[in-house]
């Protein structure tokens, strides 16, 4: 079927774009370093808490961006991995007294395994809507299982009194020492950024990119689609699981709707889409805008979510490439 041709409105200009001060890499990196490392030392507990949540969501969005932005597989059930990581780690710590540090890895690991399991049917599908429905269904199953296994998870009553990360020497991670937790998640995020950069610049990255551009072309180029997708799903689910596990031991309270609700997926979507799909710093910037925005707009009550719905629609219509490509063209 022929598509209706578009008229040619935006003819590209080949005039070199003027570089603004904020587009300089040096300015950008020093500014982010100051904001991320030094500034938090001087802020109050509340702000520190928001910053920590921001980075948790940044990690989560980074992991989703890996499947959606870099490989074009739009999963709408990514919150399942976050929830799995959170619950596995919390339950291991509560029931078996396992150290949260191991929980972080095991939570991520179980999330990765479930990522592999769900990627099996996903691998056979090409059209985005099918993948969307399948992954949504999967996340719903996970949520229902967690809320139904009342004996284990206490259902909607939730888990409370989850242990914080055990101290390393004199460095404690309980609620009285929020700055340490903040630096911990910052380190996790930097590691995740590093891993993702490594992946997308390696041979796998090339394969992923060709999947996104055209599945048929990728196949004819001999890219092993199954393997690449499986790998991406696993890695992405692992990172989401780690984020969930961190969340559990940081907030220390879990309910199925707080970590497995569709609104987590909405957060991920809004963050990544606003920041910029398929960009490395997009999810981080998006997370700052969205999570901080949500927090500081708390006075708006339930209107916040209404506004976020509208923002998501407007961004998709008017700025589908996201803020990062619109403003920080060089930072890509």
């Amino acid at each position: 079927m022929e598509t209706v041709a578009k008229t040619n409105k935006g003819k590209r200009s080949f005039v070199a774009r003027k570089e603004y001060w904020y587009q300089s890499t040096k300015v950008l990196y020093s500014a982010s370093a100051i904001i991320l490392i030094i500034l938090p030392m001087f802020v109050g507990n509340y702000t520190l808490h928001i910053l920590t949540l921001t980075l948790i969501f940044a990690v989560l969005a980074l992991s989703w961006n890996l499947v959606a932005g870099y490989s074009g597989i739009f999963s709408f059930g990514h919150h399942a991995f976050f929830g799995i990581g959170a619950y596995v780690s919390a339950l291991l710590s509560i029931k078996y007294g396992l150290s949260p540090w191991f929980g972080l890895i095991i939570g991520g690991g179980i999330a990765a395994i479930s990522g592999i399991v769900i990627s099996l049917p996903v691998l056979g599908l090409r059209a985005a809507p099918y993948i969307a429905i399948l992954t949504l269904g999967f996340a719903e199953i996970v949520k229902l299982i967690v809320s139904n296994l009342v004996g284990l998870t206490r259902g909607e009553l939730g888990l409370s009194g989850i242990e914080p990360f055990t101290s390393i020497g004199s460095i404690s991670f309980n609620l009285a020492h929020r700055l340490n937790s903040y630096y911990l998640i910052l380190a996790v995020m930097c590691l995740v950024v590093f891993v993702i950069l490594k992946v997308i610049s390696g041979p796998r990255g090339l394969a992923l990119k060709s999947i996104r551009e055209s599945q048929d072309a990728a196949e004819s180029l001999g890219v092993n689609l199954r393997k690449s997708k499986l790998y991406v799903f696993m890695l992405s689910a692992f990172i989401a699981g780690v984020a969930g596990s961190f969340y559990a031991h940081y907030v220390q309270v879990l309910t199925p709707s707080s970590v497995l609700g569709v609104d987590i997926m909405m957060q991920i979507l809004v963050i990544t889409v606003i920041g910029g799909l398929g960009t490395i710093y997009g999810p981080i910037i998006g997370s700052f805008i969205v999570v901080m925005g949500l927090e500081y707009l708390r006075f708006l009550g339930d209107d916040r979510l209404m506004i976020y719905g509208v923002v998501l629609v407007l961004v998709i219509i008017f700025m589908p490439e996201g803020i990062i490509k619109k403003v920080f063209r060089k930072a890509k």
Binding site: F74, F76, A128, P129, A132, D263, M266, L269, V270, V273, L305, M306, Y308, G309, V310, V311, L312, V313, I316, I317
Partner: peptide, 11 residues
């Protein structure tokens, strides 16, 4: 998909 998701949250 993303846009109607947004509409759903809004409504």
């Amino acid at each position: 998909l993303i846009a109607t998701f947004g509409v759903s949250i809004f409504l």
